[in-house]
């Protein structure tokens, strides 16, 4: 069976004054109908990986890959017009902060409906019905009211649910969620995660969950990729995260203060130069 998304030796580079800066250096993975976590610190290239898959790396940034297939079909560096048709319909993205992703002068419901119509070409009434259905699916109790609300009239958690509703309306095969809950409070966060979880499993989607929060990823995902300096340094099943082998993963876990394990001093991460330059996957 072909994987939903297959990435082989993905690279993203930006020319700078002092030469080419490689944000992503040879990332490879296959995504099935699963929740794949991508974890790393800022600058590890985790967000850039998501953007590169969606064709959202702006020039002068350059994306190369040996393979970037969505359901067996190559989508690397497609012309923008074709990519736009693909984005939303078959592969979608939820960003960190809904405030910046929603159009402030259009009602929430209209944005969902328009997005849906754009990809499916259904009638206005059908799109409206679909939008209301999606709002209900993300556990919004009075979809009619939220449909007519403007983005500034909804809270952060509600905004993020609206984003999820909008992104999932056209039934994409793959959803990339980039820190979807980092801007939310814990109580709201868990609710949003649960909604995401339920929708993804009910529709048999593949989910790429990008986050800096190891513990969250360990609990939420099936499989985890740990990224460092643009490379995947370790890949393992989420439930085995606490038995990670790579010193970087271990270091990250140890540096977290934990409620259930008081320590006198927190362990700090001793970065080793070797982590950057270890043999890269996909290169001869």
């Amino acid at each position: 069976m072909t994987p939903l998304l297959s990435v082989q030796n993905l690279r993203v580079g930006f020319p700078t004054r002092s030469g080419l800066f490689q944000a992503v250096r040879g990332v490879s993975f296959d995504l099935g109908r699963e929740r794949l976590g991508v974890v790393g610190e800022s600058g590890s290239g985790k967000s850039m990986t998501g953007r590169a898959i969606l064709g959202l790396v702006r020039p002068p940034g350059r994306v190369t890959a040996d393979r970037l297939d969505l359901d067996g079909e190559p989508i690397l560096n497609l012309p923008e017009s074709r990519m736009r048709r693909l984005r939303g319909a078959r592969i979608s993205m939820v960003m960190q902060d809904p405030k910046f992703s929603l159009n402030p002068v259009m009602t929430v419901g209209r944005q969902i409906a328009e997005g849906y119509r754009l990809h499916t070409g259904t009638s206005r009434a059908q799109a409206r019905a679909k939008a209301l259905e999606m709002l209900a699916a993300v556990q919004i109790h009075d979809p009619e009211r939220v449909f007519d609300a403007y983005p500034h009239e909804v809270s952060g958690g509600m905004g993020q649910r609206v984003m999820i509703a909008m992104m999932l309306a056209p039934d994409p095969q793959v959803l990339i969620a980039d820190e979807p809950t980092s801007a939310l409070d814990v109580s709201v966060r868990n609710e949003v995660l649960r909604i995401l979880d339920r929708l993804v499993s009910a529709r048999g989607m593949g989910l790429i969950f990008i986050s800096h929060d190891l513990n969250l990823v360990a609990q939420f995902c099936d499989r985890v990729l740990i990224m460092y300096a643009g490379r995947v340094v370790e890949e393992l099943p989420a439930r085995d995260l606490h038995a990670a082998k790579h010193p970087y993963t271990q270091g990250l876990l140890d540096s977290l203060p934990r409620l259930d394990r008081p320590v006198e001093r927190l362990a700090t991460l001793q970065r080793q130069a070797g982590w950057r330059d270890a043999p890269e996957e996909g290169t001869p």
Partner: peptide, 28 residues
């Protein structure tokens, strides 16, 4: 106090819920 927080000994409902939510995400 910190020991009470670690042990999850909260008096009120809200604090208890907050501690529970911070500790883990429970998958359905």
């Amino acid at each position: 106090d910190a020991a009470g927080l670690r042990a999850g000994r909260a008096q009120g409902d809200y604090a208890r819920k907050l501690i529970a939510a911070s500790t883990r995400y429970v998958r359905e």
